[in-house]
């Protein structure tokens, strides 16, 4: 029987010290990644299954790479369309995977809360949330904070600006929960149709709610002024078709990050992106590859962070059998 606390569901369930411990350990993991012989035996004998119901390149491959470097056996079940097309429920698929003795299930699912659902039902496998619907993407937020800390030193009072499709972004939600633990100043920007009403005005939020710390800036120039971090979000083309936007053209004119608009920000501001990038929509090609961009560093750090997470869930007495 697994301690329910050992799953990585979202950052609201981790304390500041747990988050800091993972970020610290990621430094050690970075050393391994940068060494000539990238292999340890720390997870030897453990089986990790990545179960992805949505397409993914960087998250899935970085989990696989992280597990393999640490000596674990990694099995990838991609898209799982085979079983879902046969009408098998998520619950039965997960039971099957648990029964082949997986220690860790890394789950990506289009439905918010899917890893919570499995954590209630599975008794023997630890679950890591690799993105659930619009809800959370805790390992992405951890790697984002890791990169931010590297460049900014501390996160306290730093101005972190997220731009664009906040409503549909699990990356932003997890980042808000994580960044607010460090006392960062979180700013959201974008057309109102892409911002949940409770982020536009926090008058309905109860006191002490982590979302109380959020500021909404409707205009891009105001938002990125004095920003320490600018993170435009991927804008799915469906948003135009579903009536949330008149056109991608207008979006990119008013909210897309170009080199010109970046001139209104601090020269040392860093530009991040959770990927995959829609160049020319939310961000221009020459910003993605420009001097402020740390996007490739995010991908690299993703491996280190996921190594640290896999270590923590497998070694944290997480798999203690009662």
């Amino acid at each position: 029987m697994i301690d329910p606390k050992s799953h990585i569901l979202d950052l609201d369930l981790m304390s500041l010290s747990q988050v800091e411990a993972i970020l610290d350990d990621a430094d050690e993991m970075t050393k391994i990644l940068n060494s000539d012989f990238k292999k340890t035996e720390e997870l030897k004998g453990k089986t990790i299954i990545t179960l992805f119901f949505e397409p993914s390149t960087r998250t899935r491959s970085s989990f696989e790479q992280a597990g393999k470097i640490l000596g674990a056996d990694v099995i990838n079940i991609v898209n799982s369309s085979s079983s879902s097309k046969k009408g098998e429920s998520l619950y039965n698929t997960a039971l099957t995977i648990q029964s082949i003795k997986s220690d860790v299930i890394v789950l990506r699912h289009p439905h918010s809360g899917a890893p919570y659902f499995l954590s209630k039902l599975l008794q023997e496998s630890t679950i890591i949330n690799a993105g659930d619907g619009m809800h959370a993407h805790p390992t992405q937020a951890l790697l984002d904070m890791y990169v931010m800390k590297k460049h900014l030193g501390t996160l306290k009072n730093k101005r972190i600006v997220f731009i664009g499709d906040i409503s549909h972004s699990r990356v932003v939600r997890s980042n808000i929960l994580g960044l607010s633990k460090f006392g960062a100043k979180i700013v959201l920007c974008g057309p109102q149709t892409l911002i949940p009403p409770d982020f536009l005005s926090n008058k309905h939020l109860p006191e002490n709610h982590p979302f109380k710390n959020i500021f909404y800036e409707p205009k891009l120039n105001d938002a990125i002024d004095q920003a320490d971090v600018i993170m435009p979000l991927r804008l799915q083309r469906e948003r135009q078709d579903s009536g949330l936007l008149p056109s991608l053209r207008e979006y990119s004119t008013y909210f897309g990050i170009s080199l010109k608009k970046l001139q209104n920000a601090k020269p040392n501001t860093i530009v991040m992106h959770p990927g995959p990038v829609n160049e020319g929509v939310e961000i221009d090609h020459n910003v993605v590859h420009g001097q402020n961009s740390v996007i490739q560093e995010q991908v690299f750090s993703g491996v280190a962070i996921r190594m640290a997470i896999l270590k923590s869930v497998t070694q944290n007495k997480a798999l203690k059998v009662e």
Partner: peptide, 12 residues
Amino acid sequence: NESWVSTQLGLP
């Protein structure tokens, strides 16, 4: 319900 709870849980 559309509220801060749905926003937090990422549910439409």
